[in-house]
């Protein structure tokens, strides 16, 4: 089982590393591949909270957007440095998630979802109305990612293929850390709280503090994804904080399979390719996306990986 999984991971990584070669051949482009990785990283981070700790956050776009604005504003107002921008975006989003965590950490289910939505909207309106600093409704433009300097050697990541590899490295490191967290006592405690919060509390676990940790960690990696996204398009707008994007994140997770570490990445891949394709062929793509939501919820609530796993068990 273990060796099997390693083999799959190695295969998957080779496929990802070669993406700039095979993507154009399938009719894609490397920015699309980068977007899948960025969103994949974001939804895998959200899934730490949603799928493993059982906290239904419907407002995680807020931290994605904060990461994006943090990175964009650093480049625009502070210093032309890509690593600094990524760091600033991640820290800003992570701190915000840490600050808002205590408001939701004792809530569950419906209450948790509604409060996270509303917090997201607060940040959305700050971005829309704080015109002179955020660019308001038109979004924040006028910044661009800068070449990376390693001593004397310069990597010009303004090239889309090279930026893809920067994102792939960030994705790999972040996924490795998140996987480590899930395998640590912290991750196992999250699952215990998800399965039976009251029992965990009787055993002496401070469930609220663990949920706070999940909220903060997942918000931090979500902010990293947001920062990478802002640098991908050299642009960000209040839509990156909107609750519609939060909904997109959650459906990607459910589509891929929320009980599986890699499920959200698969969900992001399918959802983003579908959205990209639909919006190029029909004006009514929103209707099709909405119908996709309903079909997933009614027919595939366990997601694709959940479905495959059940088939596998039935066969074995």
């Amino acid at each position: 089982m273990m060796r099997d999984e390693r083999l799959w991971m190695a295969l998957g990584w080779i496929v990802l590393a070669l993406a700039p070669w095979w993507l154009p051949w399938l009719g894609g482009y490397s920015a699309l591949g980068t977007k899948v990785l960025v969103y994949g990283l974001g939804v895998m981070a959200l899934n730490l909270l949603l799928g493993f700790a059982g906290g239904l956050s419907f407002g995680h776009a807020a931290y994605f957007g904060l990461g994006a604005y943090g990175a964009g504003m650093t480049l625009k107002y502070l210093a032309p440095s890509t690593p600094l921008a990524l760091l600033a975006g991640t820290v800003v989003g992570g701190l915000a998630a840490t600050a808002f965590g205590p408001l939701v950490m004792r809530r569950r289910g419906i209450y948790f979802a509604m409060i996270t939505i509303a917090i997201g909207q607060l940040l959305y309106f700050v971005a829309v109305r704080w015109n002179e600093f955020t660019g308001g409704e038109d979004g924040l433009a006028g910044f661009s990612r800068q070449p990376l300097h390693f001593g004397g050697w310069v990597l010009d990541i303004r090239d889309e293929n090279k930026y893809y590899y920067v994102v792939l490295v960030c994705f790999t490191v972040a996924a490795w850390i998140m996987r480590g967290v899930l395998r640590s006592p912290l991750g196992h405690t999250w699952v215990a709280i998800r399965e039976n919060r009251r029992r965990a509390e009787f055993l002496g676990v401070r469930a609220d503090l663990y949920i706070w940790a999940a909220f903060a960690i997942s918000g931090t990696f979500m902010a990293l994804a947001g920062a990478l996204n802002a640098l991908l398009f050299n642009f960000t707008s209040p839509q990156d904080l909107h609750w519609i994007l939060s909904g997109d994140f959650v459906i990607m997770i459910v589509l891929g399979g929320m009980r599986n570490f890699w499920g959200p990445l698969l969900g992001a891949l399918i959802y983003i390719v579908a959205q990209d394709y639909l919006s190029s062929v029909t004006d009514n793509w929103m209707t099709f996306i909405g119908l996709l939501f309903m079909v997933i919820v009614l027919a595939f609530p366990r997601g694709i990986l959940g479905l495959l796993r059940r088939r596998g068990k039935a066969a074995a």
Partner: peptide
């Protein structure tokens, strides 16, 4: 789990 009806009505809102 309230997750499913939340997502379903979300899709409905888009439609």
């Amino acid at each position: 789990d309230p997750l499913y009806t939340l997502l379903l009505t979300f899709g409905l809102a888009l439609v």
